[in-house]
């Protein structure tokens, strides 16, 4: 086995803590993107606590890897990672989306240490990540760039402009990760827009496609390693996920794309966290 049992358990602990941090940001009555943040939480744990080079004491460290949250509405999960790494204090979590807080509703590099770009208008982050990858390559730097894109976001034409361009430029320092949770703001992706056969779509555009269960930590780590090792061009990880993962009342429901929880749901969510903690320690 490439990873020790202890490493996997530690990453699972991080993923639980990330989900707990997300809850902390959206107490009952406060609207937030619970669904799309929790679906990608395991991948984010692997990236920030295993795969990526990060330096919280110097957020602009030139040696760092970059992560662009193209599905910017799920920035809560990125804040949840950054706070855990110490990019900013925990007191910021309660101030998310407030006038005095540094945590904006969508990623803003000017306001929040550790955020690398401005995203939120969907379809643009993969292109920004490509630009970063090309710039780093011009300087012969080894750093990698990761872009998290949504499955609903696949409807944006610009995604496919970037997909074609990245292949053309053989951007092998770029990895895209599709949070394939099957749901978007108002319904299933299937019902909203035909994005079927994503494997065929991306691979026919010249990308190295890796399909995984986006909640299986070993599969996630393997996929990220495989993407790194593939040098002929860019790689995409199609991560099959569950929107609202780990919160049964929210799992697979479009409603929790951007909603507020009731007092009862919020209590239930914390019970889920406690159960997960017990499971992982057992």
């Amino acid at each position: 086995m490439k990873y020790s049992q202890e490493q996997i358990i530690e990453l699972k602990r991080k993923a639980i803590q990330i989900r707990a941090n997300i809850l902390e940001m959206i107490p009952p009555g406060k609207v937030g993107h619970l669904g799309g943040s929790s679906s990608i939480a395991d991948v984010m744990a692997a990236l920030y606590f295993h795969t990526m080079e990060v330096n919280p004491s110097d957020p602009k460290d030139p040696k760092r890897d970059r992560l662009i949250m193209s599905k910017g509405h799920a920035v809560l999960v990125q804040y949840a990672c950054l706070v855990e790494l110490g990019y900013f204090g925990r007191e910021e979590l309660a101030k998310v989306k407030t006038l005095e807080g540094m945590l904006q509703g969508h990623p803003d590099m000017d306001k929040t240490p550790g955020i690398e770009a401005v995203t939120g208008s969907l379809g643009q982050g993969l292109s920004v990540a490509l630009g970063l990858a090309l710039g780093l390559r011009l300087d012969k730097l080894p750093n990698r760039v990761y872009a998290i894109v949504g499955d609903g976001e696949q409807a944006e034409g610009q995604i496919w402009e970037a997909v074609m361009a990245a292949h053309g430029f053989k951007a092998n320092n770029l990895t895209a990760i599709v949070d394939f949770n099957g749901l978007q703001a108002t319904s299933t992706t299937k019902e909203i827009f035909p994005i079927e056969n994503l494997v065929g779509k991306w691979s026919s555009f010249g990308w190295n496609v890796i399909e995984i269960d986006g909640h299986d930590m070993v599969q996630i780590l393997d996929a990220l390693e495989e993407a790194k090792a593939f040098t002929e061009g860019p790689s995409v990880i199609l991560a099959h996920t569950v929107k609202g993962k780990c919160f049964p009342f929210a799992e697979g429901k479009a409603k929790y794309h951007n909603a507020s929880m009731t007092e009862e749901e919020y209590k239930e969510a914390w019970v889920c966290i406690e159960n997960l903690k017990r499971e992982v320690e057992a």
Binding site: Q124, G131, L132, L134, G135, E161, A165
Partner: peptide, 21 residues
């Protein structure tokens, strides 16, 4: 960088290049 007839990608790629200095 010849970006082809894809101006939207071109503008965002430029943003990324600027982020790389």
């Amino acid at each position: 960088f010849q970006m082809g007839i894809a101006e939207q990608n071109m503008a965002s790629v430029a943003a990324g290049l600027s982020l790389a200095g």
